[in-house]
């Protein structure tokens, strides 16, 4: 049995107006939670849909659990679980009926009771799909992706649009998948989510992988491991003059300044001194370690949510 859950090589897909995926290579080991990060339009979803067999690639190879779509399509479908970006079910199907029905599509299925427990939808088992909240619908979609006890699970932006509490709940489910030995490939544009969940990740932009590795290694690769942040009450003023006096780059965000640095301890007294002298009306100042968000910013020059 192959040690790789997924191996893709030279994957390409062009649509009439845009090249969505421009040559992607990925390897995901069994038992790993792998994150595909990138802003909207980076090609994450198209990549995922080619891997899931929904979109036919223009070029490239996809090997899933040692099998290929050309020869073993039905077997692959039985072994993978998929949560699409928006799972559309029938409006008036109940949660229990949906889980029962989808279970019948597979050679082996987990019990509905077990799945309801897993995603904590027991009290909504008899509710129609259309009456569920966004978070509940996502949890149902997750349960449907697990209905066949899959070896490899694909989650396309599983927490988009959820409130913080619902996101934590979903994270717990993903962690349980990993504990059960499943391989998970998820896309997200939340950096904290990728850091919290993923063993390894790849950052995509303009249809290509621009960086990959463990979250820690990606951050370590960044030359500037810390960031000093000055927050303001309302819009942050133009930092040009301040930056010139300090002799460091100051990034201007909407309501804060960010000063990336290798030596936060040495820099902090100077920042305080100059800010005092220039009468900069900041509210708070703190030092944080660089995050994946900074990695992305550094690699692409733009923010993930742009």
């Amino acid at each position: 049995m192959s040690e790789l859950a997924l191996r893709i090589h030279g994957l390409r897909k062009a649509f009439p107006k845009v090249v969505a995926v421009a040559g992607v290579d990925l390897e995901v080991a069994r038992g790993e939670v792998f994150g595909l990060l990138g802003p909207n339009g980076a090609g994450k979803t198209t990549t995922l849909e080619m891997i899931e067999g929904l979109t036919v690639p223009d070029a490239g190879e996809i090997e899933i659990l040692g099998q290929s779509w050309k020869r073993d399509g039905q077997q692959i479908r039985a072994r993978i679980g998929v949560q699409l970006q928006s799972t559309s079910l029938f409006n008036k199907i109940t949660v229990r009926e949906a889980l029962d029905l989808y279970g019948t599509y597979y050679p082996k299925a987990r019990s509905t009771a077990e799945l309801l427990d897993l995603v904590q939808l027991n009290d909504k088992a008899e509710a129609y799909h259309i009456t569920l909240s966004g978070g509940q619908q996502q949890r149902l979609a997750l349960a449907l992706a697990l209905v066949n006890d899959p070896e490899l699970v694909f989650l396309d932006e599983p927490t988009t649009g959820l409130d913080p509490q619902a996101r934590r709940g979903l994270w717990d489910v993903v962690r349980r998948m990993k504990a059960e030995g499943r391989t998970v490939l998820l896309t997200t544009h939340y950096m904290d989510e990728a850091e919290a969940l993923c063993d390894r990740l790849a950052i995509m932009d303009h249809g290509q992988v621009i960086a990959s590795g463990t979250p820690a290694s990606l951050i370590a690769q960044l030359a500037i491991p810390s960031v000093v942040e000055l927050t303001f009450d309302g819009a942050a003023p133009d930092p040009a003059a301040f930056s010139a006096r300090l002799g460091e780059t100051v990034e201007h965000r909407s309501d804060l300044w960010e000063i990336p640095t290798r030596d936060p301890k040495g820099l902090l007294p100077r920042i305080l001194e100059i800010a005092e002298a220039a009468g900069v009306p900041y509210q708070q100042i703190h030092i944080r370690r660089a995050t994946l968000e900074d990695v992305f910013l550094h690699q692409t020059g733009r923010s993930l949510r742009d």
């Binding site: 067999g53 079910l89 597979y106 449907l144």
Partner: peptide, 13 residues
């Protein structure tokens, strides 16, 4: 339009 067929397409049905 709503992607119901797509959800079915990733199952072996």
């Amino acid at each position: 339009e709503k992607g119901k067929f797509r959800r079915l397409a990733v199952t072996p049905l």
